[in-house]
Structures are given as C-alpha cells and as structure tokens.
Amino acid sequence: MSSLKVALVTGAGTGIGRAVSLHLAKAGYDVCLAGRRIEMLNETQALGGDLAQHLHPMPTDVADEGSVNATFEQIKQKFGRLDVLFNNAGRGGPPVPIEDLPTDVWRDIVNINLTGMFLCAQGAIRMMKAQTPQGGRIINNGSISAHAPRPFSIGYTSTKHAVTGLTKSISLDTRQYNIACGQIDIGNAETPMTERMTKGVLQPDGSTRAEPRMDVNHVAESIVQMVGFPLDTNVQFMTIMARTMPFIGRG
C-alpha cells in the first residue's frame, strides 16, 4: 500500500487532465491516469520524468460502467484508498444548429460529460465512505459553459449545466461522510481542444473572432490549491479564465 495520497484524474491523456496529473504528482500524490487511449496515458506518465513512478496509466472509458468499476477495483487493490477525484473527461460537439445535431452525437456527449462523471463520482464515493480515515475530495470540471452557452453548443452546454447540479447534489448528500465536492469552471485554457480559438470562433453577434487563451498550468495550480485545503474547507465553485476572453457579457 502506498503511504502517499492517491488521486484519480479522468481525461488524463491530454490537455487539462494531463497538466493536472503532472502537478498533482509534484504535490506528492500517486496519480491514477484514466483515459481511453493508453498511448496518451503513457505519454503523460513519461512527461513526469523523475515522478513517472507516481503516475499510473489505467485505460478507462468513463461512459462504460464496467470499465469504470474495473478502474476503481484496480485503485482499491493497488492503493487501498482514494483521496481525490478530478472528474475531468469530456467532449464537445460539432457547431451545428440544434435541429441538425445527430441524436447519436447528443447521446455520446451526455454519456461522457454527464453519465461518465456520475459513474466516477459513484466509484469515488463508495471508496471514500468505506476507507479509514473516511472522506476525500471530488472536483468536477464544469467549464464556463455551465453558466453561459456559446452559439451552436447545445450538447456541451446542457451537460455542463447539469454538472453543476451533480456537484451540488454530491456536496449535499456526502457531507456527513467527510467528502468535499467542488467545481472548477475553466475558460480558454491553452490545450488542443481550444486551438481553434486562435483562428477565430463564432460569436453571439454572428461575427467570427479569435479569442485569448491562458496557460493550462494555471488551471493545474488551481486544482492543487483546492486539494490542499483540509476537508473541513471546500472551494464550492471556482472560475478561472483568460482575463480578456468574451465571457462576462459574452463580448
């Protein structure tokens, strides 16, 4: 059994999940790397350098209950406990009018962004309730789309609004078990997912404009700050964003 604290990061193979995983390892965590592509998880591990031994690739499809359950069983067998879940895995959708969004794409967005977070939260809560000492911390990646939509983003926006309800319900229903649940809402971090922002994206007024981005490591530093508090303190909601991006007022 590891004497270090244990974290699980979903979507750990790229972008925000990768940056958070590396920063948590630097902060003294053994980090379980969950994602669908083992080659990307291995790349994240390799980027850990001297800390690679504290980064543990665990291929996982968060939308598949059996896959999620197998990952939590692996964590239980390897470490015996879980201190932090960063519920990060997610996907967007094609920027098309509502009536043109294929139903199978809608379902896939919901399965990954919402059902996947629910399944991982279930697994984490079961472990955190049963372990000694009891408790832990869950942080859900909400996105600023949990507050305001972009044009033609109904799948992503709907699920991210739902994540806020998930966060609040987990906070309420698990407080007696020493589990803290919060949400981080991120705007335009520099990742492959936001590369298109630099080339211009559709704005609510119909124009197309490039948008500023921020260093993804600032997001990771914020997560480290959130998990650094004792469990009697919770950052319920945090918003971190590129200062001049069009969000407040959406323009």
Score class of each variant (00 low, 15 high):
211 E>T: 10
227 V>C: 08
235 V>K: 00
192 P>C: 04
205 D>F: 03
231 L>S: 02
209 R>E: 11
213 R>I: 14
235 V>Q: 02
221 E>H: 10
240 I>D: 00
217 N>W: 09
215 D>V: 10
239 T>F: 04
221 E>C: 03
232 D>W: 15
191 T>V: 15
241 M>I: 08
206 G>V: 07
233 T>A: 12
237 F>Y: 13
222 S>Y: 00
216 V>L: 06
195 E>F: 06
198 T>H: 11
194 T>W: 03
201 V>S: 08
233 T>H: 04
205 D>P: 00
237 F>V: 11
206 G>H: 06
197 M>F: 15
208 T>G: 06
221 E>Y: 06
226 M>F: 06
219 V>P: 00
191 T>C: 07
219 V>C: 02
217 N>Y: 08
239 T>S: 10
218 H>V: 06
235 V>C: 10
241 M>Q: 10
195 E>S: 12
235 V>E: 02
231 L>F: 04
237 F>R: 14
226 M>V: 11
232 D>N: 13
242 A>H: 03
220 A>Q: 04
238 M>G: 00
194 T>M: 10
233 T>E: 04
204 P>E: 05
209 R>F: 07
225 Q>S: 12
193 M>F: 14
208 T>Y: 03
211 E>R: 10
239 T>R: 12
217 N>T: 10
204 P>I: 07
211 E>C: 05
224 V>N: 01
213 R>G: 08
199 K>H: 12
233 T>R: 08
228 G>N: 05
232 D>I: 08
207 S>N: 03
234 N>H: 06
230 P>Q: 09
217 N>E: 14
215 D>F: 02
227 V>F: 04
201 V>W: 00
191 T>S: 14
231 L>M: 07
189 A>L: 01
211 E>M: 11
206 G>Y: 07
217 N>R: 13
210 A>K: 10
237 F>W: 13
236 Q>W: 05
237 F>I: 09
204 P>K: 07
211 E>Y: 03
241 M>G: 06
222 S>D: 05
202 L>D: 00
195 E>H: 13
224 V>M: 00
239 T>C: 11
188 N>D: 14
238 M>R: 14
202 L>P: 04
230 P>N: 09
211 E>W: 04
223 I>M: 09
189 A>S: 09
220 A>I: 11
211 E>L: 12
209 R>K: 15
225 Q>G: 12
193 M>H: 13
218 H>K: 14
200 G>Y: 08
198 T>Q: 05
215 D>E: 12
199 K>G: 01
189 A>T: 01
224 V>T: 06
213 R>K: 15
212 P>K: 07
188 N>V: 07
227 V>Y: 01
206 G>M: 05
216 V>E: 03
193 M>Y: 08
202 L>F: 02
208 T>D: 09
207 S>P: 04
219 V>K: 04
230 P>L: 01
208 T>V: 13
213 R>N: 13
223 I>F: 05
240 I>V: 14
190 E>A: 14
201 V>I: 12
199 K>I: 09
242 A>W: 01
199 K>F: 09
241 M>D: 01
198 T>R: 11
194 T>Y: 02
201 V>D: 02
